[in-house]
Amino acid sequence: MATGGRRGAAAAPLLVAVAALLLGAAGHLYPGEVCPGMDIRNNLTRLHELENCSVIEGHLQILLMFKTRPEDFRDLSFPKLIMITDYLLLFRVYGLESLKDLFPNLTVIRGSRLFFNYALVIFEMVHLKELGLYNLMNITRGSVRIEKNNELCYLATIDWSRILDSVEDNYIVLNKDDNEECGDICPGTAKGKTNCPATVINGQFVERCWTHSHCQKVCPTICKSHGCTAEGLCCHSECLGNCSQPDDPTKCVACRNFYLDGRCVETCPPPYYHFQDWRCVNFSFCQDLHHKCKNSRRQGCHQYVIHNNKCIPECPSGYTMNSSNLLCTPCLGPCPKVCHLLEGEKTIDSVTSAQELRGCTVINGSLIINIRGGNNLAAELEANLGLIEEISGYLKIRRSYALVSLSFFRKLRLIRGETLEIGNYSFYALDNQNLRQLWDWSKHNLTITQGKLFFHYNPKLCLSEIHKMEEVSGTKGRQERNDIALKTNGDQASCENELLKFSYIRTSFDKI
C-alpha cells in the first residue's frame, strides 16, 4: 500500500482533458527560462521544448504516446526543470519506465491550478516501474492521483506527508504495488545497510526511497516546507523545498512566496507586481503582455491589467481597466465587458449561442446573426445582446428569417469595421425574408467608422429604411451602385405612401 494514499474509496472516473512563447529569463536562482504550460502528445517531438525550461508557468501534460519505446527515452533528460506552477499529468506514455532521468531536479509542483483537485496525476502508464522524482520536495496545493499503472512499484516507500501538507485526498490505487509483488529495495538494503531515512506512518517504520538508488530526502521537522541542505541544516524561511546553503534567500532552489532578481522575498516591493503567484514583474512586463494579447485571437491570451499590486489576466467583477495605466478602477454604474472572439468572429444561430455573449459591452471581433427560429426570440436576444455598444469588426445579418427588427441591439452605437466582410463591408444584410426595420432612427444613433453597407434580398425592408441608415451611420456616399439592390429590397412591402385627393359631386333626387 502506498504510504499516505487512500484505498478502496469510491472515486469519480478520471477524465483526461485534452506555445513556446518565453516569458522571460528567471535569473540567477533558476538555471534556465520560464516556459508556458505545455500539452505534449502523440510523439516526442515537442518534448524537446523543455530543454531550457527551469519553470513551467502553467501545467505540463505528457500523454497518448503509443509508439514510443524505452530506448526512445534513454537520452532524454531535462535537468534544468525545477518547478511547475500548476500540475504534472502523465497518461498512456508507452515505453517510459521512470522519471528519474527525465526530470531529475523537479523540486516543486505548486498546484496553482489543479487537474480535478490533483497536482500530480500518473494514470495508465503501462510501462512505468517507478516514479523516480527523487528531488520532489513540495506539492504546495492539491493532491496526488496514481492509478492503474500495472508495473509501478516504489510507492509504499514514499512518505507523501513530507511532500504535501495533507495526504487525506491522495488516491493511489490499482498499481502493481497493490499486489505486494514489488519487493522494493532501498539503497544499501541488499548489503544489509540502512542508507535512507525511515519514518513512521500508520504504525509502520519504513525506509523512504524513490528507487533502488535514490533515497527520499527527509528534512528535520523544524525546517517545515522550506527544505534543508545535504547536511540537514534548514533553508531560509522564504525558500521552498530545498537550498544549497542554509538561511540564505539567494540560495533557495525555489521560493515559498515570490522570486525577485535572484532572491526569494515575502512580497513584491514597489515598483514590482505579483505575477502568477510566484514571481515579481515590473510595469513594462505587464504592459507588454497586455499589448501582445490586445489584437491576438490565441486562446488563453489575456490583456493583463494591474489590481491590488498584482498583474492579473482581467479586472475583477465591479472594476474596469483604465487604459492609460492598466489599473483596475471601480465602475460607475454597470461595468464594461470586452469579449474577445477566439477566431475573430462568432455566429449567433440560437439563443444558446447568444447567451455566451451575455453582459458583453464591447465585441472584439465580428458578429454573424443567422437565426431561423426560436421561442420568445426578441426578448431572449435583447437579454443577451442588448448591452453590446461596440463591435470592432463587422455585423452580418444573414438568412435570419425569424427577425423582424434589429432593435434587440438596443445599445449598439459603434461598428468600427477594423475587419470587413469580403474585404469591403462593415454591415452586411443578406436574404432576411421578414426583416422590416433596422432601428427606430428617431431614437437610435449608430456610427460606422469604416467599410460599406450591403443589402440584398431583404424583400420587406424598404429602401427608405436603408437610406436612413446611410445618413445616420455616416456611410452615405461610400456605397457603390450594386451594394444596395434596388429590386430585391422592399419588393414585397408597401414602401411608397402617396396622399390621394378626392373630389365629389353631391346629387339628390331633384338636383344634379
Rank of each mutant, 00 (worst) to 15 (best):
H28Q: 06
E33V: 07
E33N: 14
V34A: 04
V34Q: 02
P36L: 12
G37H: 11
M38C: 05
D39W: 04
R41M: 03
N42W: 11
N43S: 09
L44N: 11
T45P: 15
H48I: 04
E49H: 03
S54K: 14
S54A: 10
V55Q: 03
H59P: 06
H59L: 01
Q61M: 12
Q61S: 07
I62D: 00
L64D: 08
M65G: 04
M65W: 01
F66L: 13
F66S: 08
K67Q: 01
T68G: 06
R69A: 13
D72H: 04
L76V: 14
S77Q: 14
F78P: 01
P79S: 06
L81K: 00
I84E: 00
T85H: 03
T85N: 04
D86S: 06
Y87Q: 00
L88I: 06
L89G: 00
L89V: 00
L90E: 00
L90M: 13
F91L: 07
F91C: 02
R92A: 07
R92S: 10
R92Q: 05
Y94K: 11
Y94F: 04
G95S: 08
G95H: 11
E97Y: 11
E97F: 13
L99C: 06
L99H: 00
L99E: 00
K100A: 07
D101G: 14
D101S: 05
N105M: 03
L106P: 01
V108Y: 03
I109N: 00
I109Y: 00
R110A: 10
R110I: 11
R110P: 00
R110E: 04
S112V: 08
R113Y: 14
R113W: 13
L114G: 03
N117C: 12
A119G: 15
A119Q: 01
L120Y: 01
F123N: 12
F123P: 00
E124R: 05
E124G: 04
E124K: 09
V126A: 15
L128V: 02
K129S: 08
K129D: 06
K129A: 10
K129Y: 06
L136C: 04
L136P: 00
L136D: 00
M137T: 07
I139H: 00
T140P: 05
R141Q: 15
G142Y: 04
S143C: 10
S143I: 08
V144I: 07
I146R: 01
E147T: 15
K148W: 09
N150Y: 12
N150D: 03
N150I: 12
C153P: 00
C153V: 01
C153E: 02
L155R: 06
L155W: 07
A156T: 04
I158H: 05
D159G: 10
W160V: 01
W160L: 06
S161L: 07
S161F: 11
L164W: 02
D165G: 11
S166F: 09
V167C: 12
E168L: 12
D169W: 06
D169G: 05
N170F: 11
V173G: 04
L174P: 10
L174M: 07
N175T: 09
N175G: 10
D177Y: 12
D177W: 05
N179K: 13
E181H: 03
C182T: 02
C182G: 02
G183Q: 09
G183R: 12
T189R: 08
T189P: 09
T189L: 12
T189A: 06
A190P: 10
A190L: 08
K191Q: 07
K191F: 12
K191Y: 06
G192S: 10
K193A: 04
T194C: 12
T199K: 07
V200T: 12
I201D: 11
I201F: 15
G203S: 09
Q204V: 11
E207Q: 06
C209S: 01
C209P: 04
C209A: 03
W210R: 05
T211F: 05
S213M: 14
S213D: 06
H214V: 11
H214S: 15
H214E: 07
C215W: 09
C215Q: 12
Q216I: 03
Q216A: 10
Q216C: 02
K217F: 14
K217T: 14
K217L: 09
P220M: 03
P220D: 07
K224H: 05
S225H: 11
S225L: 09
S225F: 13
H226T: 15
G227L: 09
G227V: 05
G227E: 02
C228F: 02
C228V: 05
C228Y: 04
E231N: 08
E231W: 05
G232S: 11
L233M: 14
L233G: 09
C234F: 00
S237N: 13
S237P: 11
S237W: 08
E238R: 04
E238Q: 12
E238N: 08
C239T: 00
C239Q: 01
G241Q: 05
G241K: 04
N242Q: 14
N242A: 11
Q245A: 14
D248V: 03
D248F: 02
T250C: 06
T250R: 07
T250V: 06
K251S: 07
C255G: 00
N257E: 03
F258Q: 04
F258N: 02
L260I: 04
R263V: 03
P269N: 01
P270F: 06
P271K: 08
Y273E: 00
H274G: 13
H274L: 11
F275M: 13
F275I: 04
D277V: 06
D277K: 14
D277Q: 10
D277E: 11
D277M: 09
C286S: 03
D288I: 03
L289R: 06
L289A: 07
H291C: 02
C293F: 10
C293L: 06
S296R: 10
S296H: 13
R297L: 09
R298A: 06
R298M: 07
Q299P: 08
G300H: 10
G300S: 12
H302T: 10
Y304S: 02
V305S: 08
H307T: 04
K310D: 13
K310A: 09
K310H: 05
C311Q: 00
C311I: 03
C311A: 02
C315Y: 02
P316Q: 04
P316A: 04
T320L: 06
T320C: 12
M321S: 13
S323K: 05
S324K: 11
C328Q: 00
T329H: 15
T329M: 12
T329P: 04
P336H: 12
P336W: 13
